[in-house]
Design a binder for these strands. Structure first.
Lengths: 346, 346
DNA sequence: TTGTACGCGTTATCAA
DNA sequence: TTGATAACGCGTACAA
């Protein structure tokens, strides 16, 4: 039985170490301990050492609930996503979690389910839990709502372009990415390109479609509305949209799907109809989900590092939390040419 | 300007409604309000009505932090997953979230990353946050650790078979599911069946492999170790494992992958090597991820409703939280025959 | 059955 | 720079 053993028996007799116990052990007042932990004021470096030593010895960790009650920070950040199991946003969540963890913050995830009312409710719940900040992944909420909220706490938004005092946004280069995909097909000789869009009331979907149209006209090609089909960003929606395109009788040698999931569905519809990819029809997706490297054939798609975007969002939040100004970064989209695209047959 | 308008201006002058304000408005003491909210004691039904009315009028919601500090419940449940963006566990997370939400509980997600040390750390963090219960999705942690923890708070585990006082587990029928897949192939006339396993130190992987071997021997077939390749439950692992199988020169007409993701990877490897699925080789997966209905060809696989499992886990947790005993339910696995399997050629 | 008074662990305010 | 003291909002013995 060592000396430290004995100490721990007596000192840690009562369960959880508290800030007060640290203060006693270090021979200072509780307020001093608090100040040292939060860096709220300057303190004698000798006491500082003693306090740190006591914290070590007691394995003290501040109680988030008590902090919250007393008006301090809760060390938690609310993250509003749409569906917790979205393959797309999932990567961003991982990036957010990784960075937040490094900074000892805890993420509180909530799902808005692409529903304005639910989003507002979940946001209210997160505020009720007194999160220190909010990271919002896309969604249907009006920009104004976020701008208002940012008066109370820092907000980082992904998938929108709004900025303000405590409001920072990291947008994806949907427009440019879409142009990249279009350019790729055009350079392969495709002239009749079908487009499977996401829901038209969806910001990302709008900008991707816009990029497609813009690139088309820059290359002196006309946009043919008959070659546009709207899906829901899911496999099933891509499948149905492609079937509609096929049944329309319209000719096309290539297809752009506004996201990879719809590309998967479109690919199956194509296959069912007897078309080969890429021999008969070229297919391009958007997002470059991890899975896209393993489809048959591996999918040519627009890559965007969603994980990286999550990381950037979390870093921006940390900066905001420190009253710093996050540095704006654009995450460039880039084309990943795999095997689902090929030179158009003459 | 209506009467209620005026009231709201005066009554809600101070920010957040508190339990005390409710008490005042209802003409009772704070403790009575507390009792009514928590059902801690019987109260005069007249006062009860008055209090509920006051709560409504003030839109009062108890502060979780204050509750936590005072020793009450935090209305939060910790959920330990492995990766927040896992396509497999993601569905379970959604089920958990849906049910928890219905009961006004908030999930606190944490990722263990298939690492025993990290899992323990995250669990500690969740306890520090004073969650009312814990839902653990698989993981590498020793059963004993969970059993010990269950003395302090209710725990529901998915992917293990341990039970105890405040410990409930919902296991997947890995064994039976695997037998189903094997039986399906055998009934199609396949005799040489390759098996792409998950990590051998992984519980699910072990039981699935066991099911495969068992069914084989029941059908008087011998397990050929040369037809076993170990992957990592990811697409890339399935891809590599299949390549190894192909290079071994061993003959086989069908393959079982221990999960869908590895099946996707294996499918690509097969395709790259010039084999057609299912014409040359039949392929079966496990899990029936939503995506599996959209692969080329649509994948025959063992379906298990992971979402449903999440729902059951959350319901069990709610029961435990109410000091009730959850009713044990087994979620049956079932084979979904799609187009990646076919009668063996003679 | 109901109310009073105190404590939970921390931060903020104010003096010293 | 430091320390006492008063909140923060709620649950709960204890008393009535």
């Amino acid at each position: 039985m060592t000396d430290s053993d004995t100490q721990s028996h007596t000192a840690t007799a009562s369960r959880k170490p508290t800030l007060g116990m640290v203060a006693t052990l270090a021979g200072v007042s509780p307020s001093t301990v608090s100040r040292i932990i939060n860096g709220t004021a300057k303190v004698n470096s000798a006491k500082m050492a003693a306090v740190h030593q006591a914290i070590e010895q007691l394995q003290f960790r501040p109680d988030p609930a008590a902090r919250s009650l007393a008006g301090g920070s809760t060390m938690s950040v609310g993250v509003l996503t749409q569906f917790i199991d979205s393959p797309y946003y999932g990567e961003a969540l991982r990036g957010i979690e990784d960075i937040l963890r490094e900074h000892h913050y805890v993420p509180l995830f909530a799902s808005g389910r692409w529903n304005e009312v639910e989003e507002a409710e979940r946001l209210a719940l997160l505020q009720e839990r007194k999160v220190d900040g909010l990271i919002v992944l896309s969604g249907r909420l009006a920009d104004q709502v976020l701008m208002d909220m940012s008066k109370d706490l820092p907000i980082v938004v992904m998938g929108r372009s709004i900025t303000g005092h405590q409001l920072f946004s990291i947008d994806i280069d949907n427009f440019e990415g879409s142009r990249l995909a279009t350019r790729h097909l055009i350079s392969l000789g495709h002239r009749n390109i079908a487009y499977v869009s996401g829901p038209l009331d969806h910001g990302d979907a709008q900008r991707r479609l816009e990029g497609f149209k813009t690139e088309l006209s820059k290359r002196s090609l006309v946009f043919n509305p008959a070659l546009l089909a709207v899906g829901d960003f899911q496999e099933s929606g891509g499948f149905k949209a492609m079937n509609r395109l096929l049944q329309s009788g319209e000719m096309f040698s290539a297809v752009i799907a506004a996201n990879d999931q719809m590309a998967y569905g479109a690919r199956l519809a194509l296959s069912n109809a007897g078309y080969r990819v890429p021999e008969d029809i070229s297919l391009v997706g958007f997002d470059d989900l991890p899975h896209s490297a393993f489809t048959i054939p591996p999918l040519t798609t627009v890559h965007q590092s969603v994980y990286e975007i999550g990381v950037l969002a979390a870093k921006a939040m940390i900066a905001l939390l420190k009253k710093e100004t996050p540095t704006a970064v654009t995450v460039p989209a880039k084309l990943v040419a795999r095997e689902s695209t090929r030179v158009a047959r003459v």
